[in-house]
Amino acid sequence: MSHTAHIPSHRKPRRSASKLALRAGVAGGVLGTIAVAGAAGPANAEPVTETIEMPTLGSLDVGTNLASAVAASAEASQQEALDQSLQSLEQAALKKAAQDAKKAKAEADRKAEAERAEKARLKAEKERQEAAEAATRASRSEERTRLSTTSSSSTGSSDSSDGGGSSSSDDGSSASDSGSRTQAPSGSAASIVDFARAQVGDSYVTGGTGPNSWDCSGLVQAAYRAAGIDLPRISYQQSSMGSSVSLDNLQPGDILYWGSRSGSYHVAVYVGGGNYVGAQNSSTGVVERSLDWDPPSGAVRIL
């Protein structure tokens, strides 16, 4: 039995690899010293036969395993940090995408609201324009009624003063007026009529002077310019030109007006055959119409 058998068995704490290497080096040095001493002793000395047990260096594997564990832990920590970084980036991307989607929805809602407002504005503008046109027609009708009443009163007074002789004169003028409505224009009148009719179908634009859009006075001015005659630009100025003529004695090229002669709000060109050409409004554009469609208040002759 070993002399250390009475010592209870216990596990000694592990030493580091560096300490184990140091102990191995010391042991190697001791063994070298013993070998030298044996060689220097007497020649007849008996050889040393005692076996010295060397400590094992298997514990060095523990240090290697520990280093591997530390490296693995560092790698795991680095991977975890990378995962957290990627997660942060994903969260930031999701947050930005949500913000962009919110902005896009707000912009879409704004555009939709703007479109609804524009449609409402256009509808209101159309209704306003239709109301204005209706008011204009009503004003024209009222003016025609007033002028008709005034004309009837003047005719009645003339008939009373002239007696029966005026009847034959009226019949003659009526026949002459009927013929004037069907006669073909010639000369400057033909140029004016041809130009006016060539614009039928063009659009109406306030302030328009051609070549494809007109207002009433712009069309009349351009038609007369085609015949080499310069007219003022405004309708009431045009109706103040020339000499006043009866609606029953019209000739092609005469200027028709609506309203009073010095305060007309609309003009057109008489083209013969009981018709006129005018830039009416934005709904109809430039049209040729019968005098009965919208009878004018009066007419003037420039030619």
Rank of each mutant, 00 (worst) to 15 (best):
S191D: 14
E53C: 02
T64D: 04
A223F: 00
L291A: 07
R15K: 11
S173Y: 03
F195C: 11
S186E: 13
V245Q: 02
L66M: 13
S243C: 04
Y270W: 04
S88Y: 09
P232N: 06
R181N: 05
D177E: 11
S235L: 06
R137S: 12
V269I: 15
R261W: 02
A5N: 08
W293M: 09
M54P: 04
Q221L: 04
V220M: 00
Y276L: 05
G187F: 07
I192Q: 01
D109Y: 05
V193G: 01
Q78E: 12
A112I: 12
S246N: 13
Q280P: 00
R137D: 05
T49I: 09
S2Q: 13
K103W: 06
Q251N: 13
D109E: 13
A189P: 00
C216F: 00
R261F: 06
V70H: 06
A97Q: 15
Y224F: 12
S246F: 08
L86I: 12
A35S: 14
S264W: 03
Q238E: 05
H266Q: 05
G163P: 02
P295G: 09
V245M: 01
A299N: 08
A222G: 00
L60T: 08
S217L: 05
S191H: 01
H6A: 11
R23A: 11
T136I: 07
Q91F: 08
Y257Q: 01
R15E: 06
S203D: 08
E143F: 07
N65D: 11
S180Q: 13
L57C: 07
K95Q: 14
A117S: 11
R261L: 05
K119Q: 15
I7Y: 06
E46M: 15
E53D: 13
G278W: 00
G272Y: 02
S154D: 04
